[in-house]
Design a protein around this nucleic acid. Structure first.
Lengths: 341, 341
DNA sequence: TTGAAAGCGCTAACAG
DNA sequence: CTGTTAGCGCTTTCAA
């Protein structure tokens, strides 16, 4: 029974009058709170459905001082990485009555500040946001909000409240160790130029540290701007190999451009992983069907989302040190030589 | 100046007391409404910043009966398609003061109903949702909401209020025409099995209609479940070609599995587009760097998002017939033979 | 240009 | 188990 189009939004009072039950009891029925007799409940539900009543959470939130929203602030949706994190978050929030609300910053600190301001003005139950680097004002706002704040995807730095993520410095360092162990020595890096992609920056930092332990330095770098695509990976790889033809390894700042690089090398008939080795970062399985599998590091995206959601929902309690550091796991693929010996 | 952590959320009254200005005037300053003397404005802003005050939109929304939120309901975030649509929406909403709020249904009508209920309970300014197929209850809710409702990405069917999208029947039919014109005759289809992916279903419908115009029927079909990846595309292509080795064309329900199919055929050393032709759907440029470009249809994702956002924000007015049908454009790529003659 | 009063639609707290 | 009362923190409306 489809009701006629409403001209004035319906209120509890309408349901109350239609059912002959007090507003308070109607409210109880609709929220499954407190004890209500089956008969009354029935009357209320029938009336509410017949009218097509939808509760007003604005009023409810104001009255109860509780809002079932969790603010989730991320840099981008097209990055492949973030949908996975969001998947983990919503999976874990699903049975808690909490709802994620997504805000996108486009890697701009100013935009992040605006988005946070906007979201906090809805008085959410908690905040999950990517990264540790935020404007002074943003930190102050979060501090002041008095709600749980979980910074995700990075644990290399000072947090506001609680951190969940991997150490990108460590991920970079470990990749360097693997590469060196496999005997590669003339190493190039292809990555984003965005100064605001702090995680990529830290990865490179750790990578160079790892190389330095064996006295190796990066031989060439190639930077790009904007989003990552196979095509961009191809172009950059071609460019870096033109400039430095004798490189024997390329470390890419993510799997998508890494895959582009892989395709380029295959096109050129290069021997992988003999003549040249390749590695990306993230561990996205979307690309699993490539001719050969790219070596990479699993950034534990879904787990990061889950753990963060468990914290804001109160399912988990933050550890003493307020840091949950997950282990970035190396996925060898087919583009790194076996360790000799 | 970072204020000390708040134990009680700050209110207008706090700012009012700190600045010696009435609550009402503080409210005016913070919203840039009405005339306020420069001196007063200054006092207020200083106090607000010093305290770290963040307005309470819950209270504001209740009082003003206006909420700057636009509900956006989509089936999935991992589909590559939807981030593009969202990009169009937020680009167009950016200068309107409206904020998109994203809800994800996982292609489940029941979940869609819940998500809508939840979002409508926040009394958003408008709703943008994917597809035309919704539960009775969902349609009733939307009808009743009294706010603009824009259904996107499909124009083949009855809408609730306004439609923006492409005709998938037409997209399928036109692809069939191109394929037949190029001389292919033994045609297979690889697609999702999800009964809830109505757009894929309509595409196939149109495709078969288009084939039938020339007396051609699909020779084989291969269905899969779950998300799309290169690997799945490879597997399905291998399977369908094993069952029906003499197919000379494969139509995929999206670019990602189409690209997987492409890689499989290349692996097998098949002559593309001579021995076999291939086409996908969507026109995602993420995959542009493949060895050869997959033929596809551009689904106009960003435009769809933009037009929908223009409608809910009032920048555009809906046409008389309440339908904005964009043209799905054919992108030939390298995987369809040139039309002979 | 500023302020005072009333109330948005709901729920907490209490009473019965 | 059900109802009454009093706000939640803002903005609308009206008056000064």
């Amino acid at each position: 029974m489809i009701p006629t189009r409403a001209r004035r939004p319906l209120t509890l009072r309408d349901v109350s009058e239609a059912s002959g039950v007090s507003e308070m009891t109607v409210s109880r029925v609709l929220r499954n709170r407190g004890d209500v007799s089956a008969a009354t409940r029935e009357k209320v539900l029938t009336a509410a459905k017949a009218l097509g009543y939808v509760p007003n959470k604005i009023a409810g939130g104001l009255a109860s001082q509780r809002v079932n929203l969790v603010a989730v602030v991320i840099p981008s949706l097209s990055n492949l990485v973030f949908p996975d994190v969001l998947g983990g978050i919503s999976a874990e929030l699903d049975d808690t009555g909490l709802q994620p609300v997504i805000g996108v910053t486009n890697y701009s600190p100013a935009r992040e500040e605006m988005v946070l301001y906007d979201m906090l003005s809805w008085r959410p139950t908690g905040v999950i946001l990517a990264g540790l680097e935020h404007s002074r004002a943003a930190r102050a706002m979060l501090q002041n909000s008095g709600i749980p704040v979980v910074e995700i995807m990075d644990v290399d730095g000072e947090g506001i409240d609680t951190l969940v993520g991997i150490s990108h410095i460590r991920a970079g360092r470990e990749m360097a160790a693997r590469i060196l162990a496999a005997g590669y020595r003339r190493i190039g890096f292809v990555g984003t130029h965005m100064p605001e992609d702090h995680r990529a920056r830290k990865r490179l930092l750790g990578f160079e540290e790892g190389l330095a332990l064996e006295g190796v330095q990066l031989e060439a770098r190639e930077y790009y701007q904007g989003g990552s695509s196979l095509l961009k990976g191809r172009e950059l790889t071609e460019r870096i190999l033109t400039r430095a033809p004798d490189l024997d390894f390329l470390y890419f700042s993510n799997d998508m451009i890494g895959a582009g690089g892989l395709l380029h090398c295959l096109d050129k008939g290069m021997d992988i992983p003999g003549r040249i080795g390749l590695a990306g970062f993230n561990g996205v399985d979307l690309l699993d069907g490539l001719p050969i599998r790219l070596a990479t590091t699993d950034a534990r995206r879904v787990d990061v989302g889950r753990r963060a959601a468990r914290l804001v929902s109160g399912k988990d309690v933050a550890p003493e040190n307020r840091i949950i550091a997950l282990t970035p796991t190396f996925l060898p693929g087919d583009t790194i030589r076996a360790v000799p010996g």
